[in-house]
Amino acid sequence: CHSECLGNCSQPDDPTKCVACRNFYLDGRCVETCPPPYYHFQDWRCVNFSFCQDLHHKCKNSRRQGCHQYVIHNNKCIPECPSGYTMNSSNLLCTPCLGPCPKVCHLLEGEKTIDSVTSAQELRGCTVINGSLIINIRGGNNLAAELEANLGLIEEISGYLKIRRSYALVSLSFFRKLRLIRGETLEIGNYSFYALDNQNLRQLWDWSKHNLTITQGKLFFHYNPKLCLSEIHKMEEVSGTKGRQERNDIALKTNGDQASCENELLKFSYIRTSFDKILLRWEPYWPPDFRDLLGFMLFYKEAPYQNVTEFDGQDACGSNSWTVVDIDPPLRSNDPKSQNHPGWLMRGLKPWTQYAIFVKTLVTFSDERRTYGAKSDIIYVQTDATNPSVPLDPISVSNSSSQIILKWKPPSDPNGNITHYLVFWERQAEDSELFELDYCLKGLKLPSRTWSPPFESEDSQKHNQSEYEDSAGECCSCPKTDSQILKELEESSFRKTFEDYLHNVVFVPRKT
């Protein structure tokens, strides 16, 4: 048989008469490798580009789960590009990614509803959504962080984005990388972005840091009482949809009607710091009717980097990364020049730590249904340095008659930039024990000054392991946590139920 035959053949030295091919099969003959313009397919066939392209389009058009959109890589027609490569849609070739590779997620039936953290986790790592997304989240724990972890990498949506009755959302900033909504599939009414009845939605994105392009379709905003109209108009300008909307697409009466839409800028007039305090004062603000001013709200939190936005980490279910302080308005003076500047002394802060701070007014709604208010920009203030805590785990070892090696770990709280350490030492008198000992005694162990690591005695271990207080009263049991108490109650309830079950099964009433 021919060298490319495997198993047997019907005619000697003829690659077209093989029972099976050793390498690849091409047009009725066995070959060692697939010549151009053919590609290896499933490690035994040679196919042309049209064959591989037909497989790709067949799966793409069917949208069946589990099928493969075949691509070409290293002269092979394979189910998908290997790690580190992405497909070129024009020629199906796998090309190296520039940075992290995109991950295209194809949605069944063309859309997916995100109504819980669990459903959001199914899209973790996706960068391109081939379909439409509907966000409908009523509640949950730590929602802002969970949504950002699972949806934060999405850069492109081919269909539309719909935010509907998501009472738990305060902001859409968890879509931190969303840059493009194509609108290839539109919501009824030709809408590519749809926001309806979101009672706590206050911000779409921080438009000073976020760009969003909507290729096709219109915007729809109705019944978002805490979303200011200025935020919607800003989205029109940034996304390129200005002029597409009709009169009733953006409701003037049901958007922002319960919001404090600040239209003035508060400026800080005085800032002073110490290692654990920050004193702030800002310019006074009074609405047209000074009785509408209820006070100020001061927001602050630790910020290692200057990239904080107002609604980071917030949701309507209680999660809030900001510390909020309510401040009463100052006494009002008739003389504008003698107006008191409101302020606040922030206490209990960490030394040498940068804080993000902003302040906003708290006002009631005027009778004319106009909203007044003022808010400052987010500023960054760093507390002063102070003395560091003591170095940890000092170790001293003498390696000769004239040297001592000293080692330690950095302090747990540096409280500033540590530039150097101060080492103090003092000579001590020799131990009298060394002169009084009889060095001729056998088995004498000389006193040693070398360091030995501390260890816990058996008594201390027994005390720590004991669940009861000892007789001397030195140790006591740790208080039980809520989960331990709940577990004990469940076990007790189970024992009672099981005992009742045994009584009912074992003891049967005697027939009379």
Rank of each mutant, 00 (worst) to 15 (best):
K103F: 03
L107P: 15
G110C: 07
D115G: 05
D115A: 14
S116A: 05
S116K: 04
S116N: 01
S119C: 02
A120S: 05
Q121L: 02
Q121Y: 03
E122W: 13
L123K: 01
L123D: 01
L123P: 04
G125V: 07
V128H: 06
V128E: 04
L133G: 01
I134T: 15
N136M: 00
R138S: 04
R138I: 05
G139A: 04
G139V: 15
G140T: 13
N141F: 08
N141H: 15
L143V: 08
A145W: 05
E146L: 02
E146V: 03
L147N: 01
L147R: 02
A149T: 12
A149K: 15
A149V: 06
N150W: 11
N150V: 01
N150M: 13
N150A: 02
L151R: 02
G152C: 10
G152H: 15
L153N: 14
L153R: 09
E155D: 08
E155H: 07
E156Q: 14
I157T: 01
S158C: 13
G159L: 01
Y160N: 09
Y160M: 14
I163F: 02
S166W: 00
S166I: 07
S166C: 14
L169M: 13
L169W: 01
V170P: 10
V170L: 12
S171N: 09
S173Q: 09
F174C: 08
F174Y: 13
F175Y: 04
R176P: 06
R179I: 13
R179V: 10
L180K: 10
L180Y: 11
I181K: 01
E184F: 12
T185L: 09
T185D: 11
T185N: 10
L186Q: 12
L186V: 09
E187N: 08
I188H: 09
G189Y: 15
G189N: 15
N190A: 14
Y191E: 11
F193Y: 10
Y194Q: 13
A195C: 14
A195V: 09
L196V: 12
Q199M: 07
N200R: 11
Q203I: 06
L204F: 14
W205C: 06
D206N: 11
W207K: 10
W207Q: 07
W207G: 08
S208N: 05
K209T: 12
K209Y: 08
H210M: 08
N211H: 10
N211G: 04
L212S: 02
T213Y: 06
I214D: 02
T215P: 13
T215C: 11
Q216L: 06
Q216I: 06
F220Y: 03
Y223Q: 05
N224R: 02
K226G: 02
L229S: 10
S230Y: 00
E231R: 09
H233V: 07
K234F: 07
M235A: 08
M235L: 15
M235V: 11
E236C: 11
E236S: 07
E237R: 11
S239Y: 15
G240S: 10
T241P: 10
T241L: 11
K242N: 08
G243V: 00
Q245H: 14
Q245C: 08
E246L: 10
R247E: 02
N248R: 06
I250L: 13
I250K: 08
I250D: 15
K253W: 14
G256S: 09
D257F: 13
A259P: 06
S260G: 01
S260F: 02
C261S: 02
C261D: 05
C261A: 13
N263P: 08
E264F: 04
E264L: 11
L266K: 02
L266D: 01
K267P: 03
K267N: 13
F268V: 09
I271D: 02
T273P: 07
S274N: 06
I278N: 01
L279F: 13
L279D: 07
L279T: 04
L280V: 15
Y285S: 03
P288V: 14
D289V: 03
D289T: 03
D289G: 03
D289R: 05
D292Q: 02
D292A: 02
L293Q: 01
L293P: 01
L294K: 15
F296C: 01
M297W: 06
M297K: 08
L298K: 02
F299L: 12
Y300E: 01
K301E: 04
K301I: 04
E302Y: 11
P304M: 13
P304F: 10
P304D: 10
N307W: 10
N307L: 14
E310T: 07
F311W: 15
F311S: 10
G313V: 07
D315K: 15
C317N: 06
C317D: 09
G318Q: 02
W322M: 02
W322C: 13
T323L: 14
D326S: 04
I327L: 01
P329V: 05
P329E: 01
P330T: 08
N334C: 15
N334A: 07
N334L: 11
N334Q: 12
N334F: 13
D335E: 15
K337S: 14
S338N: 08
Q339C: 14
H341M: 11
H341W: 10
P342I: 13
G343T: 14
W344V: 08
M346E: 08
M346C: 08
R347Y: 04
R347F: 05
G348T: 02
L349Y: 01
L349M: 08
L349G: 03
K350P: 05
P351F: 10
P351T: 12
P351L: 02
P351Q: 03
W352V: 04
W352H: 13
W352I: 15
A356K: 05
A356T: 13
I357P: 00
K360I: 00
K360R: 05
T361P: 03
T361W: 01
D367A: 02
E368D: 09
R370M: 01
R370A: 15
R370G: 12
T371N: 10
Y372R: 05
G373A: 02
A374T: 04
K375A: 03
S376F: 00
D377R: 11
I379K: 14
Y380S: 12
Y380A: 01
V381E: 08
Q382K: 09
D384R: 03
A385T: 11
N387R: 12
P388R: 06
P388V: 15
P388S: 03
V390M: 15
P394I: 03
I395A: 05
V397R: 14
S400V: 10
S400R: 14
S400K: 14
S402Y: 14
K409Q: 14
P411A: 05
